[in-house]
Every structure is written in structure tokens, then in C-alpha cells.
């Protein structure tokens, strides 16, 4: 493992554990409330981790120091993208585990404590799985956009606000899309078909790959 990736994982380990646990708990609550709208927060959490890693490096001057170490630009930039994939994967796994835990609690409670009845919840809930996959793909694409913005503009206060706004808007948007309530504001999007999921996979992968190429270009061009 190259130094950049090792550094990113080591530094983010402490913060990420809290986020992963939080996501797991959120998934449990999603089962209890029979609504997946809270899963929109995955986008915010998943995209913020890699972006904040770049921001921190910039703030304390580690990015300048790292440019003086025997590591290629490709390794530095790709480590941020690998961190994105890793955190998104971890959030995905924690959400699925949270969902399983929520379903098991509901089955154990057997309709008590105002929890959903055992026949109303299922571990193999395809609707949940499709939604969590969809939102993970959105997360990867948003993170890719944020990383490009940081590599291009560094971290002036104004620039820091743009990613935060983008992240929050898309996160809330995803939350609304996940809303299972029939009277919800965006009712038609509450059900995500496999076609939509495949399209999202292609689009998000292209955005992520393009973002990597651009970030690498900006990393080499905008050093000061």
C-alpha cells in the first residue's frame, strides 16, 4: 500500500468509525419507521469524508509536504478516490448490517413497542437493496465532483461552501427520492427500477472516472 493511501486510511479511521456506526443505527431506524428517506444522509457522509481529507491536508500544509515525498501525482490523487470507494463501501455494508439488525429486532419484538410486525419487514428487501445501491452510486459521483472542486480551487472559504451546499442539496434530494410515503413531495421517484439503477451505475462511473482524470490534471497544474 502506498504512503498516501496508508495516510488517508490511518487519519480517517477515527472519524470514520463514528460515521459507520451512525449509518448502521440510521438503517435500524429506517426499518423501524418503514421509511428509507433518512438514507439520503449517506450521500452527505460518504462524500464529506474524502473531501474533508483533502481540505485537512491543505489546511495544515501536508499537501505541500507530500509533493516533496517520493510519491507520484497518480498515487496521491488515486488514494483520495480509493478512500471514496472504501468509505462508500463501508457505509453500504454498515447500512445493510443495520437493516438486518433492524429486521431481526422487529421479528424479536413481534409487534410490541410500536415496531413493525414481523411480516411487514424482510431481510431480503429488494427495494431497500436497490435504493442503497442507487444512493451509494450517487455518493461516489458527488464525492468525485467535490474532489475536483478542491483540487481546482484549493480551500478558500467561498470554495469550501460550494461543496457543502452541493453535498447538502443532493443529500436532501436523495432523501426525498427515497421517501416511501405515497403523499410525498416526490412520489413518482420513490420506486427505483433496475433500469434506473443500471443507468445510474453507468452515469456515476463515468462521472467518477472523468473526475479522476480532471483531478490529476489540476493536481499537476495548480500547485500554489
Amino acid at each position: 500500500m502506498n504512503g498516501s493511501l496508508r495516510k488517508n486510511i490511518r487519519e480517517m479511521r477515527g472519524v470514520s468509525i463514528y460515521i459507520f456506526v451512525f449509518m448502521g443505527l440510521l438503517s435500524v431506524l429506517a426499518v423501524f419507521s418503514k421509511s428509507n428517506s433518512t438514507l439520503g444522509i449517506i450521500t452527505i457522509m460518504g462524500a464529506v469524508i474524502p473531501a474533508s481529507s483533502i481540505e485537512r491536508d491543505n489546511q495544515r500544509g501536508f499537501d505541500t509536504f507530500e509533493r516533496m515525498l517520493p510519491v507520484s501525482p497518480e498515487q496521491v490523487v488515486s488514494s483520495k478516490y480509493l478512500l471514496t470507494l472504501f468509505t462508500t463501501l463501508m457505509i453500504f455494508v454498515c447500512s445493510v448490517l443495520g437493516h438486518i439488525a433492524g429486521v431481526l429486532i422487529c421479528k424479536g419484538a413481534d409487534g410490541r413497542f410500536a415496531l413493525p410486525k414481523p411480516d411487514e419487514v424482510s431481510i431480503a428487501d429488494s427495494d431497500f437493496l436497490i435504493k442503497i445501491c442507487f444512493i451509494s452510486l450517487i455518493t461516489i459521483a458527488v464525492a468525485g465532483l467535490l474532489i475536483v472542486i478542491f483540487y481546482r480551487f484549493k480551500s478558500s472559504t467561498f470554495i469550501r461552501m460550494i461543496p457543502a451546499a452541493v453535498c447538502l442539496t443532493i443529500g436532501i434530494g436523495c432523501g426525498l427520492m427515497m421517501n416511501d410515503d405515497e403523499d410525498s413531495f416526490i412520489g413518482p421517484l420513490s420506486e427505483i427500477s433496475t433500469v434506473v439503477l443500471i443507468t445510474a451505475f453507468v452515469v456515476c462511473t463515468v462521472i467518477f472516472a472523468a473526475s479522476y482524470v480532471l483531478s490529476l490534471k489540476f493536481y499537476n497544474k495548480y500547485k500554489d
Binding site: 500500500m1 502506498n2 504512503g3 496508508r6 495516510k7 490511518r10 487519519e11 515525498l69 510519491v71
Partner: peptide, 16 residues
């Protein structure tokens, strides 16, 4: 990074 110890920095730099 603030949360790193000397031993962590040892492991980190060995990657570079």
C-alpha cells in the same frame, strides 16, 4: 495529522 503518534508516523513514512 494531530491524531497520529510517533509510531504511526513511522509506519506512515515507511510507505513513502
Amino acid at each position: 495529522a494531530d491524531n497520529l503518534k510517533g509510531r504511526d508516523i513511522d509506519r506512515l513514512m515507511s510507505g513513502y
